[in-house]
């Protein structure tokens, strides 16, 4: 929500604009994801996939997973237990 989502949006946009389309987002310190965060994740996913990349999520909380499922987007994402596994999945 608010500046947190705006900051992440800018960071991701800069990465994608710079040619980095394989993105790992670690959610381990995010207790909940609201609709603005979900919107950011799915737009990021769409943007990277258009360029041949992907977005992988690491350690979303149980509640974050429930929320993503509630709005029907959980199945769009691959989820990993740690950053290394997510990075290796791009190999």
């Amino acid at each position: 929500m608010g500046s947190a989502v705006d900051g992440l949006r800018q960071t991701i946009q800069e990465a994608v604009d710079g040619g980095d389309t394989r993105i790992v987002i670690n959610l381990s310190e995010v207790p909940m994801i609201d609709s603005s965060g979900i919107g950011l994740l799915v737009r990021c996913l769409a943007s990277t996939k258009q360029r041949g990349g992907n977005v992988k999520l690491v350690q979303p909380s149980k509640f974050a997973v429930q929320t993503l499922r509630l709005v029907g987007v959980l199945s769009l994402f691959e989820i990993f237990e740690n950053d290394d596994a997510a990075v290796e999945s791009f190999a």
């Binding site: 609709s35 603005s36 919107g39 799915v42 996913l45 929320t67 509630l70 709005v71 029907g72 987007v73």
Partner: peptide
């Protein structure tokens, strides 16, 4: 409906739906 296939990748439009689910 944010779960309609046309809307799944939208950047917004899930807030009220979430409230109703929660």
């Amino acid at each position: 409906d944010p779960k309609h296939p046309e809307n799944v990748l939208a950047g917004h439009g899930r807030g009220v739906y979430l409230i109703r689910q929660l």
